[in-house]
């Protein structure tokens, strides 16, 4: 068996091992050194950042956590950066979710990103956790006309009518911005279809920014920028946005060191690079094998024909 044949029939576990090394080694190195790659923000991330940056102080922002712990590796950094940016902008944050398994994630994000940054915020006045509602896009349709019908209480069981910051919230149009971090169905696509689209061309269209996984990004590209003012695509989008948010926070708090916990996405770009390089390498090797073997079989059959 020639080298090429052996390479072609390689046990896929060697590929697995290479991938494990390509990701794990950079993580250890970066973890020990704290190094990061510089980020050059792309257009969709910049648009996201600018949409939030343009919010006035006290803007009402609905933040839907539509993901589960399984995709948190990709999406939690976005949720964190969004939350910190909102804290920085002194926005009023209304958290909710349409994914049952996201309820603990909301509490964690609020605690880790909003309250550590500004500990004097008051629940019910500056931020609220409205919890989970079953019903997928059905919920979206209902909150488009009557928010409190779908969310009669918050996650702590308090009536939404009794929460100070819920005063004046009638439906999704009452919010200055809707933020969605989504991993699948129901997610950003449904938010565009059922919440944003019906308001297009009618007075004040709803503003939406979304953080999405790499796999759903291609489907959402057509909605940007008319139906979606911003989009963070995959961990790269998260890293770019995180970088911009950190710059703003650094500028606002000179001399205060930035906790490294807030560079999660940027840290993950290094394993990302090596993973991608491995993939590219594999594709090149795969094709080299293919072409070499094709030439061999052609010259082989030519020889047979001559004989």
């Amino acid at each position: 068996m020639s080298f090429i044949d052996r390479l072609d029939a390689i046990d896929r576990r060697w590929i697995f091992l290479m991938m494990a090394c390509a990701v794990a080694i950079p993580i250890i190195v970066i973890g020990l050194t704290g190094a990061r790659f510089p980020e050059v923000p792309g257009p969709t991330s910049t648009a996201t950042f600018e949409t939030i940056e343009a919010l006035p102080e006290g803007a009402k922002v609905l933040f839907s956590f539509d993901f589960d712990p399984a995709s948190a590796g990709e999406l939690q950094p976005m949720a964190n950066a969004f939350m910190r940016h909102l804290g920085q902008k002194k926005a009023k944050v209304y958290c909710q979710t349409l994914w049952a398994s996201a309820t603990p994630l909301i509490e964690e994000t609020l605690k880790k990103c909003l309250l550590t940054q500004s500990p004097d915020l008051v629940y019910g006045v500056d931020y609220v956790n409205l919890g989970y509602q079953a019903g997928n896009e059905g919920v979206m349709k209902v909150i488009s006309t009557d928010y409190k019908q779908s969310f009669p209480t918050d996650a702590k069981g308090t009536r939404t009518t009794a929460i100070p910051m819920m005063e004046g919230i009638e439906n999704t149009s009452s919010f200055d911005l809707i933020m969605v971090v989504s991993a699948g169905y129901p997610g950003s696509k449904e938010w565009v279809q059922y919440v944003v689209s019906p308001t297009l061309g009618k007075g004040k269209p709803i503003q939406l920014v979304a953080g999405v996984t790499g796999v759903s990004a291609p489907q959402l590209v057509p909605y940007f920028p008319t139906q979606m003012q911003g989009m963070l695509a995959a961990i790269k989008g998260a890293a770019e946005y995180e970088y911009m948010v950190n710059e703003v926070i650094k500028a606002a708090n000179p001399g205060k060191p930035l906790p490294p916990a807030y560079m999660e996405a940027q840290r993950r770009m290094a394993p990302q690079l090596f993973g991608h390089l491995l993939m590219v390498g594999l594709i090149i090797v795969g094709n080299t094998i293919f072409f070499v073997k094709r030439r061999q079989s052609r010259s082989g059959s030519a020889m047979k024909a001559a004989a």
């Binding site: 896929r12 590929i15 697995f16 991938m19 399984a70 948190a72 491995l278 993939m279 072409f291």
Partner: peptide, 24 residues
């Protein structure tokens, strides 16, 4: 467990790409 199951995809995309992405 669910996050780990999900992350197995990092390995499977690599082996699928090696096998399927050939200019046939």
């Amino acid at each position: 467990i669910t996050a780990t199951m999900f992350s197995l995809l990092a390995f499977y995309v690599a082996s699928a790409a090696f096998r399927a992405f050939r200019a046939k």
